[in-house]
Structure formats: structure tokens, C-alpha cells
């Protein structure tokens, strides 16, 4: 019911009210001159302000920015060129240094090998001398030990026998026995 009422009201408004006043107010010449007058005043005032104040300011700023950007681009290109020159120099220096380092390391290696060999030889000679010396000392010591052995064995046997029987044995007999055993031992070892 409400919907029908609304549609009816709508149709009524269209048929009676909407186009009650006919014609275009724009075609009424009453204020034409006044509108042209104010149009010219406002339009040319705006034109004057834009032409005189705003355009120069903004164009100057835009121009300044363009100059700054072009200068920065030029500077950056200069720097780029300088960097490429420096990079080339750096690469050349690095290549030369590498080459030099390789040559020097080869020379050093040869020198080092030579020195090592010399040292090795020297050490081997020293070692031989020392070995011979030590071997001689060992032999001398062995010989000396064998020479002293009857005396040591005599003293030791005297002490043992004295402890067992409670009296000192005859030293000359003991010495003879030990000397005989030692001779036999020497013969069995060195023959």
C-alpha cells in the first residue's frame, strides 16, 4: 500500500511540479553585461597574478631544479670517468704486483730450497761426527767397564761371602777366580 502511494506521489510530482516553470534562465539578458563585466575583471585579474607572480616563481624553481639535476648528472659522469680511470690504474697495479709477487716467490723458493739443503747437509755432517763420537765414548765406556769388572765383582763377592760365612775370604784367590771367569766371558763375547 505504501509503495503504491509513493509511486502515485512520484507521478503526481512529475506531472504537476517538475516543469512548472518553463524556459532557460540563462537566456534572460538582465545580468548579461554584469556577468561579462565580472568575468573580464576576475579572469584578467587571475591572468595578471599568474603571469606576474606565480608563473615566474614556479618556472624559476623548475629551471633551478633542472639545472641542479643536470649539474649533478654531469658531476656523477665526471666521477664515473675518474673512477674508471682509477679502476684501470688499480687493475694494472694489481696485475703488476701479482706478477712481481709470483716472480719473487719463485726466487725465494729456489733460495730457500738451497739454504735448506745446505743446512741439511751441515746437520747430517754434524750428526755423523756426533754419532761417531758417542759410539767411541760408548765403546770406551764398555771397555773401561769390562776392565773394572773384576775389581767390582771382587769387592761385591767379598761382601757377600763375608755376610754368609762371617769371615773375609782370601782376596788373591777370589781375584784369580773372578779374573778367570771374566776372561772366559770376554772370550765368549768378543771371539
Amino acid at each position: 500500500m505504501k509503495k503504491i502511494l509513493v509511486v502515485a506521489l512520484f507521478l503526481l510530482s512529475i506531472s504537476q511540479g517538475t516543469y512548472a516553470k518553463e524556459g532557460m534562465p540563462q537566456l534572460n539578458p538582465e545580468f548579461w553585461i554584469a556577468q561579462i563585466f565580472w568575468l573580464i575583471i576576475t579572469f584578467f585579474l587571475l591572468f595578471f597574478l599568474i603571469q606576474k607572480f606565480f608563473t615566474p616563481k614556479i618556472l624559476f624553481t623548475i629551471e633551478q631544479r633542472k639545472n641542479l639535476i643536470s649539474n649533478l648528472i654531469k658531476d656523477s659522469e665526471d666521477y664515473k670517468n675518474k673512477i674508471s680511470v682509477l679502476e684501470n690504474e688499480y687493475n694494472q697495479i694489481i696485475t703488476q704486483a701479482k706478477k712481481q709477487a709470483i716472480d719473487e716467490s719463485l726466487l725465494l723458493k729456489v733460495e730457500l730450497n738451497k739454504r735448506i739443503n745446505e743446512k741439511k747437509k751441515k746437520l747430517a755432517d754434524q750428526l755423523n761426527i756426533e754419532t761417531e763420537k758417542v759410539e767411541k765414548e760408548i765403546d770406551d765406556f764398555k771397555k773401561k767397564t769390562l776392565d773394572n769388572l773384576p775389581e767390582i765383582a771382587g769387592n761385591f763377592s767379598t761382601e757377600i761371602i763375608e755376610k754368609i760365612i762371617g769371615a773375609k775370604p782370601n782376596a788373591s784367590n777370589l781375584k784369580a777366580i773372578i779374573s778367570e771367569i771374566t776372561d772366559q766371558e770376554k772370550k765368549s763375547r768378543y771371539v
Binding site: E30, F31, I33, A34, Q35, F37, W38, L39, T42, F43, L45, L46, L49, I50, F53, F54, I58
Partner: peptide, 24 residues
């Protein structure tokens, strides 16, 4: 002798110009 009174149309021209000037 010509009527150049301020109208609603003129007022909105002035407002528009004012807005543009304000913008700049």
C-alpha cells in the same frame, strides 16, 4: 549607466579565482 551589480554568478567567479590564488 550600465548595471554591473554583483550577482550570484559573479560571486562564484570571485570564489573560484580566490581558490586558484590560494592554491598558488
Amino acid at each position: 549607466g550600465t548595471n554591473v551589480s554583483l550577482t550570484n554568478s559573479s560571486l562564484f567567479m570571485i570564489i573560484s579565482v580566490f581558490l586558484i590564488i590560494l592554491f598558488f
